[in-house]
C-alpha cells in the first residue's frame, strides 16, 4: 500500500480556542492580592479575678477614637493619625537604654544568660511538679509548659543576639485600641496600619543593627524557604519589640 501524506491540520481555530480560554480566565480571576492585618481574639475566661491588679499607666499606650472620628493618643488629642507610629516608636525607645523612673514610659528589664538559665530550670521543675500533682487541670499544665517554651525562646534569642544582657520591655506594656461603635472602619484600619508601621520600623532598625539586613528581607526569605535560622531571627526581633495589642470591645 502506498504511503499517504498526512493532511495538514487546520490551525485556524486555534486562536479562537485560546481567546476563549483567555476570556474565561479574565472573568474568573482577580488581580488584587488580599492584604490584611492578622489579630488574635482573646479566649473567654470563665473564672475572673475579683480585683485584677491594676496596670501601671506608663505601660499603656492607649489609642482612642470616638464616633466623630477624633483621635486621642495617651490622653492627648491628635489631628493627624500619621503621627501614631512615631509615638509608638517613642513608647518603645524611651527607656530602652537606661530606665528613667520619672518619665511616663514602660520600664525595661535587663536579664543575663545565667539568670535566664536558672529561671528556665525553675520553670521546668514547676511544670513537672504540676504535672505530677493528681487532679491538676489540663489548662494549668499547658500554661506551665508554655512558660517553659517562653524561657527557651529567650535563651535562644540571647544566644543569637550575642550580648551579655537581653533588654526586654515590661511584660505589661501594651498597645490598647479603644474605638466606639460609630467609629468608621477606615480610621480603625488606619490605627492598625500605624501600629504595624511603628513596630515594623522598630524591628527593621534592630534587624539592620544585629543582622545587617532588613526585616522585610528576612521575613520574605522565611516565607519562601522556612529556614530555622530565619525563624529564630524573627523570634528575637519579636521578643525585643513584642506586639501586644488589646482591642477593647466598645460599649457605646
Amino acid at each position: 500500500m502506498a504511503k499517504r501524506d498526512t493532511p495538514e491540520v487546520n490551525a485556524g481555530s486555534m486562536a479562537d480556542i485560546a481567546f476563549l480560554l483567555l476570556i474565561f480566565f479574565l472573568v474568573t480571576t482577580t488581580m488584587d492580592k488580599d492584604q490584611a492585618y492578622i489579630r488574635n481574639i482573646p479566649k473567654i475566661i470563665e473564672k475572673k479575678k475579683e480585683n485584677p491588679d491594676p496596670v501601671e499607666k506608663r505601660d499603656i499606650f492607649a489609642i482612642q477614637a470616638n464616633s466623630q472620628n477624633q483621635l486621642m493618643v495617651r490622653g492627648e488629642l491628635m489631628r493627624d493619625p500619621d503621627d501614631i507610629s512615631e509615638r509608638i516608636i517613642e513608647f518603645y525607645r524611651e527607656n530602652e537604654q537606661v530606665n528613667d523612673v520619672t518619665n511616663d514610659f514602660p520600664m525595661y528589664s535587663r536579664i543575663t544568660m545565667p539568670e535566664i538559665e536558672s529561671l528556665l530550670d525553675q520553670s521546668i521543675t514547676a511544670a513537672e511538679e504540676v504535672e505530677a500533682t493528681p487532679g491538676a487541670l489540663a489548662d494549668i499544665i499547658d500554661f506551665k509548659w508554655r512558660q517553659v517554651a517562653e524561657w527557651e525562646k529567650k535563651k535562644r534569642a540571647l544566644e543569637i543576639l550575642g550580648t551579655n544582657k537581653l533588654a526586654e520591655i515590661s511584660v505589661q506594656a501594651h498597645i490598647r485600641i479603644e474605638v466606639q461603635k460609630g467609629t468608621e472602619y477606615e480610621l480603625f484600619a488606619k490605627i492598625q496600619s500605624e501600629v504595624e508601621q511603628g513596630l515594623f520600623e522598630l524591628r527593621d532598625d534592630a534587624a539592620m543593627k544585629i543582622f545587617k539586613e532588613s526585616y522585610q528581607s528576612i521575613k520574605s526569605r522565611l516565607a519562601m524557604d522556612k529556614g530555622a535560622e530565619d525563624r529564630e531571627k524573627i523570634q528575637l526581633l519579636k521578643i525585643l519589640y513584642p506586639d501586644r495589642i488589646i482591642e477593647v470591645t466598645p460599649k457605646r
Partner: peptide, 11 residues
C-alpha cells in the same frame, strides 16, 4: 481602606 505593612493572605 488603605494601610501599610500588611500581611499577604495568599499562602
Amino acid at each position: 481602606p488603605e494601610g501599610a505593612r500588611t500581611t499577604d493572605m495568599t499562602p
